[in-house]
Computed example of a mutant assay.
Amino acid sequence: MSSTTYPRALRRNLTAHGFLIGAVLCFAFFSWYPMVREVLLAFQKAEGGKTNWVGLDNLRTVFNDPAFGQAWRNTLLFTGLALVLGFVVPFLVALVLNELRHLNGYLRMLVYLPVMLPPVASVLLFKYFYDPGYGLFNEVLDFFHLPAQQWLQDPDIAMLCVVVAATWMNMGGATLIYLAALQTIPGELYEAADLDGAGLWRKIWHVTVPQTRLVLSLMLLMQIIATMQVFTEPFLLTGGAGPEGSTTTVVYLIYQYAFNFNNYGAAAALGLLLLVLLAGFSAVYVKLSRAEDE
């Protein structure tokens, strides 16, 4: 290496390592440190700016809270409904977009548009739609001479209303991912299915789904992780708790512990439980995926 080449290579390596160190420091300060601090705070009690070690007291406080069980039930209900709507609907929309030959770009932009809107604006739009007095949905029901509904005020359907709003807000990204996966499927497979006399649903089940299995399974995992942490939609639509606590989720309960009750230890303990659950689910998913690949 010549005398002029070595300093140039050194500067290039120092620049690359400088960017790498900066990224690592950002992750350490804004992601890893809060996670470690949250785990420690789950076993501590903060009073007057000082923390004292209390062991499992925070976990006992969380388990003894009457809202604990309801929050988990509501969160699991939201996750289940979101999988039915937010996982299936984007895939079906992607199937339709993949078959269209005209206005493809326009329709894709239209599907992705809700993702580009600020989440608060989207939620407030649906809050207007759900208004029992002058909301759009009740206007539609009135047009068909159907009785009006107390959408967000009815504990039986409040969670479903939240799921519908969340699905509309977030389906654009999933739809484009599915659409990209569909376009990688060789056309010869569909031609062979046509020669075998397969109908539409048989081609979807025996060709489309197997060919997009990896993307579908990964999106399923991401969907579960995201929906188990839902907060924005119920907080803005129903104030968090909802009628008779019907939309109280685990993350909203964490928010209540931290900012309403000033019990950061209990908030951290509940957050730790959620972290352990999602980490366990992710570990099982990875293990099953590896076993299936082998």
Rank of each mutant, 00 (worst) to 15 (best):
M1S: 13
R8V: 09
R12K: 09
L14N: 12
H17I: 06
H17P: 00
F19R: 10
L25I: 15
F27V: 15
F27Q: 10
A28E: 05
Y33S: 06
V36C: 13
E38I: 01
A46E: 10
K50F: 15
W53P: 00
W53D: 02
G55T: 05
T61D: 08
V62M: 06
F68T: 03
G69W: 07
N74R: 14
T75N: 04
F78V: 06
L85E: 02
G86H: 01
F87Y: 15
E99N: 12
H102T: 08
G105N: 13
L107W: 06
R108G: 00
M116K: 08
V123H: 03
F129H: 02
Y134G: 01
E139R: 13
L141K: 04
F144W: 12
F144R: 02
A148E: 06
L160K: 00
V163Q: 05
A174H: 02
T184H: 10
I185A: 07
P186I: 15
E188N: 09
E188M: 09
L189P: 00
Y190K: 03
A192Q: 15
D196Q: 14
D196I: 14
W201F: 15
W201Q: 04
I204T: 11
H206W: 02
S217M: 12
L221D: 03
M222T: 13
I224F: 08
M228T: 00
Q229T: 05
Q229V: 04
T232A: 14
E233S: 04
P234Q: 08
T238C: 07
G242R: 04
P243N: 13
G245T: 07
S246A: 14
T249C: 04
T249H: 07
V250Q: 00
F259G: 02
N263T: 01
Y264K: 12
G271S: 14
L273Y: 03
L277P: 02
F281V: 15
F281G: 08
V284C: 08
S289H: 04
R290Q: 12
E294F: 11
E294I: 08
